[in-house]
């Protein structure tokens, strides 16, 4: 176990943090923006046969949450692969 992270590990952690933050921004925009703070204005927008804010609050947000977690798992798999490739190049 090393005292501090080496350069590549720090790169990995920074990438990880950046990914988490961008996904959380979407999480907040959809959940708290679309479904709560903008609920009144979006109530007057129609989405098929219901109001848009109702659809986001009862369906859309949940779909987005599922996607966010899926994207995180996929992107982290990719990042793991990249990191391992970097280790090989460095040797």
């Amino acid at each position: 176990m090393k005292q501090t992270l080496n350069e590549k590990q720090r790169w990995y952690w920074k990438k990880n943090i950046k990914l988490i933050l961008s996904l959380l921004v979407v999480w907040a925009l959809v959940g708290y923006g679309g479904a709560i703070l903008l609920a009144e204005p979006l109530y007057h927008v129609r989405f098929f046969n219901v109001s848009l804010s109702y659809w986001i609050a009862h369906q859309g947000s949940i779909l987005v949450f599922i996607l966010l977690i899926l994207i995180y798992a996929l992107r982290m798999d990719k990042l793991d692969k990249k990191y391992k490739a970097m280790l090989k190049d460095g040797e």
Binding site: L23, A35, H58, S61, F65
Partner: peptide, 25 residues
């Protein structure tokens, strides 16, 4: 949800959105 209508979203979003925090953080 049937009785709260729109405001039932507190349970719908609250009990799913937490997984985003759990999975990422």
């Amino acid at each position: 949800v049937a009785f709260l209508g729109y405001d039932g979203t507190i349970y719908l979003m609250g009990w799913t959105g937490g997984y985003v925090l759990l999975a990422l953080l």
